[in-house]
């Protein structure tokens, strides 16, 4: 009833988790059965170890939060040698979020992850707003976005999802460019660039000054962009941005997302993903929907 496909990737249900909000899955193993998920996207992984940005890295804002973690991670080698053996037994789709500052770095990470049997897909992050070089720089211009996707496509042979930035004038144009360059799917939206000021201390609340906005505050923007992109490309769309409930997820599916990712809501309720899966099933039963694919992109 809930099974969907993203290119060659078979998901038992459309519910995945968003990179950077779910660690390597293990952090949530006490709260949920990870095998129930359609998939999960692990923390952004770069070519070498990164310390990320200085603290403070986050601030709560109305119905959302800003973060500026800056891709802190142990690097791809550490992921392959230490993390992967700990999680590869899981019966769900483990997707690696591949990040970098240069085309070479993206390709290096992608090709190392390509060799891991139990990783069926990557999410190419050309949209991180919190690193100075690369990241979002690649995702805001169609030409550069196509260039990096084309290069990664040559070295990566499984399902290639490209994560798009909402910090652009025309997201459909970027989506079409990466589709043309060989992407199997696009996921959106990454965080919206934002800022908050401590008026008493008269300084920015975050050390990096700006950060990415996530949570329910961004949901209507995300739904709109998913709808625009779904009408512009033929490849499947993965929707994310402020999803907290099954009803939110259904909104994204109707807007054109084949699967969804849950991000900030994991911080509020570490078991929210399984509640969304149960809620999707209950909604389908209550509305006489025998196959969830029947509601995808109906708007």
């Amino acid at each position: 009833m809930l099974a969907v496909n993203i290119h060659n990737l078979k998901l038992k249900n459309p519910v995945m988790t968003a990179s950077g909000t779910f660690g390597y899955g293990e952090e949530f193993a006490d709260f949920i059965d990870l095998n129930r998920l359609g998939g999960f996207v692990v923390k952004g992984t770069t070519g070498t170890h990164r310390e990320g940005n200085p603290y403070p890295r986050m601030v709560e804002t109305p119905s959302g939060m800003l973060n500026s973690v800056g891709l802190q991670n142990g690097g791809v080698e550490k992921f392959c040698k230490e993390v992967y053996p700990r999680i590869k037994h899981l019966d769900t789709n483990i997707i690696v979020n591949v990040s970098g500052s240069s085309i070479e770095e993206y390709c290096d990470v992608a090709s190392q992850v390509d060799a891991l049997d139990r990783i069926p897909a990557i999410e190419l992050n050309i949209s991180c707003p919190n690193v100075k070089h690369g990241g979002m720089g690649f995702g805001t211009q169609p030409g550069m976005a196509a260039e990096v996707v084309e290069a990664v496509r040559k070295v990566y042979h499984k399902t290639l999802i490209v994560k798009l930035s909402p910090n652009v004038t025309n997201i459909a144009e970027i989506a079409k460019a990466v589709e043309g360059a060989g992407a199997d799917s696009v996921s959106l939206i990454n965080t919206l660039l934002g800022m908050a000021i401590d008026i008493e201390r008269r300084r920015p609340r975050m050390a990096n000054v700006t950060g990415g906005l996530s949570g329910p505050a961004v949901k209507p923007v995300a739904v709109r962009m998913v709808w625009q992109v779904a009408h512009a490309v033929k490849i499947p769309v993965v929707g994310l941005g402020g999803i907290c409930t099954a009803e939110d997820a259904i909104e994204f599916l109707m807007a054109g997302a084949t699967a969804i990712e849950v991000g900030t809501a994991n911080f509020i309720d570490p078991a929210v993903t399984v509640k969304i899966i149960d809620g999707l099933e209950a909604w389908c039963k209550a509305h006489g929907v025998s196959d969830i694919n029947d509601i995808i992109g109906i708007i």
Binding site: F28, Y55, R57, Q72, N266, F267
Partner: peptide, 17 residues
């Protein structure tokens, strides 16, 4: 004590040097 989101080591928001 640092500002914190997930509480379980997933989001890396609350780091200290």
């Amino acid at each position: 004590e640092n500002m914190m989101a997930c509480g379980v080591g997933a989001c890396l928001c609350c780091v200290t040097d």
